Computed example of a mutant assay.
Amino acid sequence: RIPLEDVPEDEAECTAWLHKLYQEKDSFQEEYHRRGIFPETPMVPPRRPWTLLNWLFWASLLLYPFFRFLVNMVSSGSSLTLASFVLVFFMASMGVRWMIGVTEIDKGSAYGNANSKPKP
């Protein structure tokens, strides 16, 4: 983000400032294409243990009933119960896969392609 105070108000100064900004952007892009990394030093975010602890807390809280149910199902020994559980689990898995497939994009946009422009 560029603070509004940094943008010159005079039209000529603003043009020169914007031209310089695009030159810097282009040099960054050229450097990236040449070396595969941006010229600045890479920023490595610090590790945050609270994120992991938060995830572990909620995962254990929400998954405990499921695992308890799973252990009870397996220990019941009933073939019909186990087959029903496997069938429900399989149907749920297929339903999730179907929902993911619905959201996939089959064809991208042709915006900006020279071949997609209408001919006069």
Rank of each mutant, 00 (worst) to 15 (best):
19 H>K: 15
20 K>F: 09
22 Y>T: 01
22 Y>H: 15
23 Q>A: 14
25 K>G: 02
27 S>C: 03
28 F>I: 12
28 F>N: 01
28 F>C: 00
28 F>S: 05
30 E>M: 14
30 E>P: 07
31 E>S: 10
32 Y>E: 01
33 H>R: 14
34 R>E: 13
36 G>S: 10
37 I>K: 12
37 I>E: 10
40 E>L: 08
41 T>K: 11
41 T>G: 03
41 T>Y: 01
43 M>C: 07
44 V>W: 12
45 P>G: 05
46 P>I: 08
51 T>Y: 05
53 L>S: 04
53 L>G: 01
55 W>I: 06
57 F>K: 07
58 W>T: 06
59 A>N: 14
60 S>W: 14
62 L>Q: 11
64 Y>C: 05
65 P>F: 06
65 P>G: 13
65 P>N: 06
66 F>Q: 05
66 F>R: 02
67 F>M: 11
67 F>S: 05
68 R>I: 07
68 R>S: 04
70 L>H: 03
70 L>A: 09
71 V>K: 13
72 N>I: 02
72 N>G: 04
77 G>Q: 02
78 S>I: 10
79 S>R: 13
79 S>N: 00
80 L>R: 09
81 T>I: 08
81 T>R: 15
83 A>G: 01
83 A>T: 09
85 F>N: 07
89 F>L: 12
92 A>D: 02
93 S>R: 08
93 S>F: 14
94 M>W: 14
94 M>N: 02
96 V>N: 05
98 W>V: 01
98 W>E: 07
102 V>R: 15
104 E>H: 13
107 K>H: 10
